[in-house]
Write a protein that binds this DNA or RNA. Structure first.
Lengths: 66, 66
DNA sequence: AGAAAATGTAAAGTATATTTGTCATATAGT
DNA sequence: ACTATATGACAAATATACTTTACATTTTCT
């Protein structure tokens, strides 16, 4: 799976720490997701959807290996 | 979080086992998600999105407690 | 250049997703 | 009523998300 969270975050001009606080996770969780170190839960995806005001499918996409 | 997977599955007229095989998980995983026993990963949500041919936000929604 | 803020990442611990196996109950078809 | 199929659910084991702490590197601002 790949994501464009870094881009969405840039659009809002907020830091990893600020985004983390908005959705109630640690900064490292945001950092790890942006770095594709692990796959977030659907609850987290929906919260990002709220913050970015876009559907989950807009910034999370399946890749070959999924 | 709440979901309408049971409904989407009924629309396609497939069993929990068939849906599980389509997205590569066990039948119990589908059963547990439908029963809200746990929150699936985003990869799983995207795969369901493909099978149902609908965006993730269409069948997964945040609730008060999220 | 130098200081402050932001990012990348790693390790250890905790929480939770997912699997496999199993059994009970419900539903559908004959 | 009988049989087969589908569903609900639990327990133990394994995998992985997420937290906290901590430190190094990079970027930004003056």
């Amino acid at each position: 799976m790949e994501n464009t969270i870094k881009v969405e975050r840039a659009i809002l001009s907020i830091t990893q720490d600020e985004l983390a606080k908005k959705i109630g996770v640690s900064r490292q969780t945001i950092n790890s997701i942006e770095a594709n170190r692990y796959v977030p839960s659907t609850v987290l995806a929906l919260k990002l959807s709220e913050v970015f005001n876009k559907p989950v499918n807009a910034f999370f996409k399946l890749t070959e290996d999924d």
